[in-house]
Structures are given as structure tokens and as C-alpha cells.
Computed example of a mutant assay.
Amino acid sequence: MSSNDDQIAQAECHFGVRFPEDYRHFLATEGSMGRFVPPTDDFLMINPITELIKVNEAGDFQERFPRSVVIGGDGSREMLTYDFRQEPPSLVLLDVSAQDWSSAIHQATSFAALLEQFPETGWKWDDFEPSPS
């Protein structure tokens, strides 16, 4: 087991979850990211595994959002968060000042889906999901 795999396992143990395979693969291969994604030019930041516990403890996210794991964000106030209250966990956006889950804005059903759609959609700022035409 590589040190990266060990760190992933430690974070999973800390949060009492198993990360989805697409996110685990990203952590093991890419590790992290922080860049403006064209053509939307929205900033997407995915935290390295070494920062996950610290980031989640800094914002008291576990108290305000039970079964959550913040994995990144927009580089400012919005936190990209796994919602482990459901299986499989979806990704939502939460403002750092949000008090509970009612403020969550759905982003994607999986990490792979987020990365695939992000260049075209960027961040979604409301919960409206357009119906397919």
C-alpha cells in the first residue's frame, strides 16, 4: 500500500466513510487541483488528502453537517462537499456560513460526473435541475 493509499484509508477511518472509487482514484493519481476551468472559467479546487481532516475540522462542518466531508470548493466561501447521508453520496455546494443541510446546492451525483460537466456548467448556484429536452 502506498503512502497515498494509507492517507486515504486514514481519512476514511476518521470520517467513518468509504470514498467513492472515482474520487479515490483521483486522490491516488492526481492528488489535488486548483485552477480556472475553461470555457466557464469558474475556479475549481480539490483539496489534497493531507488537508481533508484539517479543512473539515476548521469549519466545524461535522457538527453543522453530519455525515459530510468537504473535499474542495470555489477557492472562496463555497465548499464542495460529499453528502454521505445517502448512498451513493452526492456532491453539494455549501457556503462556509451555512448552518444546516437546507442550504446545500446539488452539484453532481459523482466526482466523475462533476469533472465531466464542470467545463460546461461551472458551479450551479441554485437547486433547479433542468429537465432533459
Rank of each mutant, 00 (worst) to 15 (best):
D6V: 14
Q7M: 14
A9S: 13
Q10N: 13
Q10F: 11
Q10K: 13
E12D: 11
H14I: 05
F15N: 05
V17I: 15
V17Q: 00
V17K: 04
P20V: 02
D22G: 01
D22Q: 13
Y23A: 07
H25N: 13
H25Q: 14
L27N: 00
T29P: 00
G34S: 15
M45L: 15
I49N: 04
T50Q: 12
K54E: 15
K54D: 14
Q62H: 08
Q62E: 06
E63Y: 04
R67W: 08
R67F: 09
S68V: 11
I71V: 15
G75Q: 09
S76H: 11
D83F: 06
F84G: 02
F84A: 07
Q86T: 13
E87W: 06
L91Q: 02
L91C: 07
D95Q: 08
S97L: 14
A98V: 02
Q99N: 10
D100N: 15
S103T: 08
I105M: 06
I105K: 02
H106Q: 09
H106R: 08
Q107S: 11
L114G: 01
L115Q: 11
L115F: 07
Q117Y: 07
F118D: 09
E120F: 08
W123S: 04
K124A: 05
D126Q: 13
S131Y: 10
P132R: 10
